[in-house]
């Protein structure tokens, strides 16, 4: 599903050039649950953003669903992204001015679904996330766990092939964290590919593979094995 070849990302400011990713070569297959770990500033989020087509690499190749997308324009990436990728963030990133229903509905709006289709799909995922009773609430009226469930609902409402989660449990207590992880596992079991960045070794274990980054390099890739720094 995803393949990178010598992926490189440089950030250039006025005076300093920082290498965020250096020669990253990874391959993620359909149906996998991949955890990405590493210390702060190692390039985890950068990698996730590039995999999620939010950003272009500076060098190297990125293959996504048989397309070489590293040189895609913003518009082309947006097109590919909205049809295939769902995002879950540490800080939930719900729009404060929209209700739970409207937040979840948003991706479908941009995909051009009809009103009735949107309604049934949104209700379906909200049922699935057990947040239906909060459908008309605004994000600030929800607990962190509830907000993250809404965020997950929004990520999956368009049935994407890939879900990218950037520390989805980072802002939650362990109980809510567990809940979110089991949601993700459930989705993976139903065939959705998941790539998750996390600091937590415990939650990384939920993946069938852990990719470890350090200073922009892939250090190790472990299949169903524990890894200690």
């Amino acid at each position: 599903m995803i393949k990178t070849l010598n992926l490189k990302k440089l950030y250039t400011t006025e005076e300093v050039e920082t290498t965020a990713l250096n020669n990253v070569n990874i391959e993620i297959d359909k149906g996998e649950f991949v955890s990405i770990m590493g210390p702060s500033g190692c390039g985890k989020s950068t990698l996730l953003n590039i995999l999620g087509l939010l950003d272009n690499p500076s060098n190297g190749e990125l293959h996504f669903l048989e397309h070489e997308v590293s040189k895609y324009s913003e518009r082309q990436r947006a097109q590919l992204r909205k049809q295939n990728i769902g995002f879950v963030f540490q800080s939930f990133n719900l729009i404060d001015e929209l209700t739970v229903f409207e937040n979840v509905e948003l991706p479908l709006l941009y995909l051009g679904y009809s009103s009735s289709e949107r309604k049934s799909k949104v209700n379906e995922v909200l049922e699935q996330m057990e947040i239906m009773h909060r459908v008309n609430h605004f994000p600030q009226q929800l607990s962190g766990g509830q907000q993250q469930r809404v965020a997950v609902a929004r990520a999956i409402v368009s049935s994407p092939k890939l879900i990218l989660a950037d520390e989805p449990t980072g802002n939650l207590d362990s109980e809510r964290g567990d809940e979110v992880m089991s949601l993700l596992t459930g989705l993976n079991e139903n065939g959705t590919t998941i790539v998750m960045v996390t600091h937590s070794p415990t939650y990384a274990e939920y993946g069938n593979r852990i990719i470890h980054l350090f200073d922009g390099h892939v250090v190790t890739e472990n299949y169903k094995e524990k890894f200690h720094v």
């Binding site: 999620g52 939010l54 913003e74 518009r75 947006a78 097109q79 992204r81 909205k82 049809q83 995002f87 990133n93 719900l94 729009i95 404060d96 001015e97 948003l106 991706p107 941009y110 995909l111 929004r154």
Partner: peptide
């Protein structure tokens, strides 16, 4: 900005 960011991530184009 957050709203703009989210909408872009979700797939809104600049024109939209």
């Amino acid at each position: 900005m957050k709203e703009i960011g989210i909408k872009k991530v979700i797939g809104a184009t600049r024109n939209q």
